[in-house]
């Protein structure tokens, strides 16, 4: 009996080690421990053995069964492991590049605009939008720019034919001409006409000048403009805001200075220079970056604010110019060509 069991185990060992797939394994398993299996046959013989032999034989059979179970488990584990390996496919080459699309990118003008809006949000400015097609009232009249002002003539401003109608751009004066806004200041007027002060807004957006396109000029460009209206707003507050903006944007050592200037819609008016020698391609001590001033009382009159009560400041700048300074870009046209080699640099 002992020899028979040993022979059975030897046979099982040989067979199972050759079994590679699950079906063969199940068949082999049935041959040994199934209802008609060879080990099962030994166990069935137990009943017919004399009483005194039972413990000895039982022990032998049990030992054989333990061994066989171990063999089966090993064989099964090997097969399962083979099955998983089969799912994996060949080994990868981790040095090959991913064929999937690169991450998307924001345009540098968007990045600069959003950064400015974040900086201004901390000082309580909300972002507003206004139409790009405007009317003479919002773009000029209300901003103290009289009808014969050079900026309004057809050499410099794009107009639409008198018959053209814009269904969703409101006119203040019947039959006034539609035009493409020359600055985002028109949004100031629309905002102020909507409700009473105090107001603190920033309006970024696209503006148009009838101009030749070259390295520094483009048929349309983008401005960003701030307006704050409240009681007792001062020149010093305006300077403080600009110091804050540019220190946030360019670092603590950035200085700004005000040069008196003239704009019809502010009084006093200033041009703003900033000193930031650490920027790329800046070789002057002071660079002009925008215009600003205290809101002219005539502008308040035009929107029905009492100019003896309310004061305010406005500040505007060109986004392309700012982006050119920040990134060291020397031609405005790059922004509008969208060469991917350009766009991907700012991600």
């Amino acid at each position: 009996m002992q020899d028979q069991l040993k022979a059975l185990l030897d046979k099982a060992r040989t067979e199972l080690s050759a079994t590679k797939i699950r079906a063969d394994f199940e068949a082999a398993k049935a041959r040994y421990v199934g209802p008609n299996g060879s080990l099962t046959a030994f166990m069935k013989q137990m009943g017919s053995l004399p009483k005194e032999q039972k413990p000895i034989v039982g022990k032998l059979i049990n030992e054989a069964k333990t061994t066989l179970t171990g063999l089966l488990e090993n064989a099964l584990r090997a097969i399962e492991s083979n099955e998983l390996a089969a799912q994996l496919g060949p080994e990868i080459d981790p040095t090959l590049p991913s064929p999937d699309a690169l991450a998307g990118t924001y345009h540098p003008l968007t990045l600069v605009r959003e950064e400015m809006c974040r900086i201004l949000a901390k000082a309580g400015f909300n972002v507003v939008e206004g139409p790009e097609v405007e009317t003479e009232f919002y773009c000029f009249d209300a901003l103290n720019t009289p009808a014969d002002h050079p900026a309004r003539n057809e050499q410099d401003t794009f107009y639409f034919p008198a018959a053209t109608r814009f269904g969703n751009v409101s006119r203040k004066v019947a039959d006034e001409k539609y035009l493409l806004r020359t600055h985002t200041s028109s949004v100031q007027i629309r905002t102020m006409l909507k409700g009473p002060p105090p107001i603190r807004i920033v309006s970024p957006g696209r503006v148009y000048r009838r101009d030749t396109t070259d390295a520094t000029h483009s048929a349309n460009f983008h401005q960003l403009e701030c307006l704050y209206v409240d009681k007792n707003v001062t020149v010093r507050d305006l300077k403080a805001l600009l110091d804050y903006i540019f220190a946030s944007l360019l670092g603590k050592d950035t200085k700004t200075r005000f040069r008196p200037h003239y704009f019809g819609y502010t009084e006093p008016s200033f041009e703003v220079d900033l000193s930031a020698r650490h920027l790329p391609k800046v070789n002057k001590e002071w660079i002009e970056i925008g215009g600003c001033g205290m809101v002219d009382p005539t502008v308040f009159d035009a929107v029905g604010y009492d100019s003896s009560v309310w004061t305010g400041y406005a500040f505007g700048m060109g986004l392309e110019r700012l982006a050119m300074l920040l990134y060291g870009i020397d031609d405005i046209r790059y922004f509008y060509q969208n060469d991917l080699r350009f766009l991907r640099q700012f991600a």
């Binding site: 998307g104 990118t105 048929a219």
Partner: peptide, 25 residues
């Protein structure tokens, strides 16, 4: 409009798109 532009841009950038800026005219 500002919120809309911000959200759609974020979604498309997330989908691997490159933002472009072209002339209006």
């Amino acid at each position: 409009i500002v919120l809309f532009n911000r959200e759609v841009s974020a979604y498309l950038v997330g989908q691997g798109f490159n933002e472009c800026v072209n002339y209006t005219l």
